[in-house]
């Protein structure tokens, strides 16, 4: 056999992580777009809940309309849905079906996989916010953030909240041993948090220990930060501490980003348990 000139040369460097990651993001968005029939209900659930509550409970809350009352919390829930729930379920399934193992067998940089997920989640998060703001504003005449500072608050809460929930979702996917058991591990805790983090039930009426427990997770802080962006200054009096306290929101979500990243780095597996 002759020696072939096909060996590695500097020109054979595999494509970089950013380029492959963006390509993965585009692929994931295309897959999502083709799957819209099966995901449309999950994606539009926060908007449907907002529409129902805004119609049924208008006038129940003194001094504020039902849509204004529920919009910040439902945006937080929508963001957690497209990040935590979406990644928790989809990564568990990708691991269970051997898809992750297949990727690991290619020269795809591991970072590219996460860049791709980031692109997908950011796309879905912006879509989620646009849908909720559209329904709230056009159908129910909701208040939007009043000034650039309030929009900026919406921006950073969206970014930090989605990032922390995404990392938590990736970490939780590793707890799933079998994708059929994923709903119990991913969906149930999220459902409980919706009732204990001030989304459906105001924080002010919840028992103190419930709020303390819910404060350990990002959803409560996201909802609080978003209320700061959407509601008029006077509404802050309804918060437990009498203020929205954006620095502590940023601190809590920032800590969750760090903790979530550490959990992901410690627990992420490309192979399913059954693959050994």
């Amino acid at each position: 056999m002759s020696i072939r000139a096909e060996g590695p040369s500097p020109a054979d460097r595999p494509p970089g992580a950013l380029r492959v990651g963006l390509s993965r993001g585009l692929l994931e968005i295309r897959e999502f777009a083709h799957a819209w029939k099966s995901v449309i209900l999950t994606f539009s659930l926060p908007a449907l809940v907002l529409a129902m509550l805004s119609s049924l409970l208008d006038g129940v809350f003194a001094g504020t309309s039902a849509v204004d009352h529920y919009l910040p919390g439902l945006i937080a829930m929508g963001l957690m849905s497209v990040s935590f729930q979406n990644l928790g379920l989809s990564i568990a399934q990708e691991r269970d079906t051997g898809g992750l193992r297949r990727l690991r067998g290619t020269p795809m940089p591991p970072t590219a996989y996460f860049v791709g997920k980031t692109v997908l989640v950011m796309f879905l998060a912006l879509g989620q916010v646009a849908l909720l703001l559209g329904v709230a504003r056009l159908a129910f005449g909701a208040r939007l953030p009043a000034d650039p500072a309030a929009w900026a608050t919406l921006g950073w809460v969206l970014l930090l909240g989605t990032a922390s929930c995404s990392l938590l979702g990736i970490a939780v996917s590793s707890l799933v041993r079998d994708s059929r058991s994923a709903s119990g591990i991913v969906i149930a805790p999220f459902l409980v948090l919706r009732f204990t983090s001030g989304i459906f039930v105001p924080v002010a009426v919840l028992p103190g220990w419930v709020v303390d427990a819910a404060s350990l997770f990002p959803l409560l802080w996201m909802a609080q930060g978003l209320r700061a962006a959407f509601l008029p200054a006077g509404a802050a009096a309804l918060e437990p501490g009498g203020a929205w306290n954006p620095p502590s929101v940023a601190l809590a979500l920032g800590v969750w980003c760090v903790v979530g990243l550490a959990l992901v780095l410690l627990t992420f597996r490309w192979k399913a348990g059954k693959d050994g």
Binding site: R13, P14, E31, T106
Partner: peptide, 19 residues
């Protein structure tokens, strides 16, 4: 770079069944 010179044929589901 080594990995890019190797091909592995897996028996597994595609990640993107709708593409």
């Amino acid at each position: 770079r080594w990995r890019s010179r190797i091909g592995v044929v897996w028996q597994c589901e595609a990640l993107t069944p709708r593409l």
